[in-house]
C-alpha cells in the first residue's frame, strides 16, 4: 500500500456561526509524527472534529485531501474507512453497545461485506491488545465508555486505534488525566503503530508526552491558525518559557480565536 498523506490547505471552520479555524495549512505524511500545541480555546479540537466530519463543525473554506481524495466531501464513516482516525478528547458514552461489539463492527465496516474478521480471531486480537494496554479483560463486554474513568476512556481510544490501524491518526489530548504509568502505556501503543503506513497528528498541552512519543514537527496554534512550526526543540522551548515569550515574539496579545482576524 502507498504511503498515506493528509494535506490541509487554507482550512476555515465555523461553529455555531463563529469562525474558529482561520486559514490553516498542514501536511502529515506516513511515518511522521506532528504535534500541535497551544493554549486553551485556540481551535485545536475544532480542527480535529472538522477533519473527522462532526456535523456541528462547518468547513467554510479550504481543501483537505487524504491520499489525494477529497476528504471534505466524504461522510464521517467514509472518512474512517478511508483510514482516518480521531481519538477524541471527550468520546461519547453509548449504553447498551459493548466495547467488543463496537470494535468488531468497526473492523468489519472497513473490511467490507464478505471479508468480515472471524469472531474468534477478533477476540484473540482484542484480548492481546487490551493486555498490552493494561486494560482489564472485562472491558470488552462493558458498555462503550459508560462509567469509564477519564484515563480508561483514553486507553480505550488507543485500543480502538491499535485495532483499526489507521493511515492517519489524530490524537486529541490523549495524555490529559493520565498518570505517568498510564502515559507510558499509551505512548507505547502509539509507538507500536509507528511505521511508514501511519501518520500521526498529536494534540497536547504537555511536553512530557513528547518525551515518550518523539515528534518530527511541532506546531503552535493560536487564533485559529498555526503561528509557529519547528522541530522537537520547539516543544522544549515552550515548556521552559511558556506561551508568553512566543506571543511577544510574534506580536500576539490575545491568542484566543475571538482575537484573530
Amino acid at each position: 500500500m502507498s504511503v498515506p498523506q493528509l494535506v490541509i490547505e487554507g482550512l476555515h471552520v465555523t461553529v455555531e456561526g463563529k469562525e474558529i479555524v482561520k486559514g490553516l495549512d498542514l501536511t502529515v505524511g506516513g511515518g511522521e509524527i506532528h504535534a500541535i500545541m497551544g493554549p486553551n480555546g485556540t481551535g485545536k479540537s475544532t480542527l480535529a472534529s472538522a477533519l473527522m466530519g462532526h456535523p456541528k463543525y462547518e468547513v467554510t473554506g479550504g481543501r483537505v485531501t487524504l491520499d489525494g481524495q477529497d476528504l471534505l466531501s466524504m461522510s464521517v464513516d467514509e472518512r474512517a474507512r478511508a483510514g482516518l482516525f480521531l481519538a477524541m478528547q471527550y468520546p461519547a458514552e453509548v449504553p447498551g453497545v459493548s466495547n467488543a461489539n463496537f470494535i468488531r463492527q468497526s473492523l468489519n465496516a472497513r473490511a467490507g461485506e464478505g471479508n468480515e474478521i472471524p469472531v474468534l480471531k477478533f477476540h484473540r486480537q482484542l484480548q492481546e491488545k487490551m493486555k498490552k494496554l493494561n486494560i482489564d479483560a472485562s472491558f470488552a463486554e462493558r458498555y462503550l465508555n459508560e462509567g469509564f474513568s477519564g484515563g480508561e476512556k483514553k486507553r480505550n481510544e488507543i485500543l480502538q486505534m491499535s485495532m483499526l490501524e489507521p493511515r492517519i491518526a489524530i490524537l486529541d489530548e490523549i495524555d490529559s488525566g493520565l498518570d505517568i504509568d498510564a502515559l507510558k502505556i499509551v505512548a507505547e501503543g502509539v509507538n507500536n503503530l509507528k511505521s511508514p503506513q501511519t501518520g500521526f497528528l498529536i494534540i497536547t498541552h504537555y511536553q512530557r508526552l513528547l518525551n515518550y512519543i518523539v515528534p518530527d514537527r511541532v506546531h503552535v496554534m493560536m487564533q485559529g491558525r498555526i503561528v509557529k512550526s519547528g522541530g522537537r526543540e520547539l516543544a522544549e522551548y515552550l515548556e521552559a518559557h511558556g506561551y508568553d515569550e512566543l506571543k511577544a515574539e510574534l506580536g500576539i496579545e490575545d491568542e484566543s480565536v475571538q482575537a484573530g482576524v
Binding site: 466530519g53 461522510s75 472518512r79 474512517a80 482516525f85 468520546p91 461519547a92 463496537f102 465496516a109
Partner: peptide, 9 residues
C-alpha cells in the same frame, strides 16, 4: 457520530 467515526454506517 462516535460510531460513524470508526467506519460504521
Amino acid at each position: 457520530y462516535y460510531l460513524m467515526s470508526r467506519g460504521i454506517s
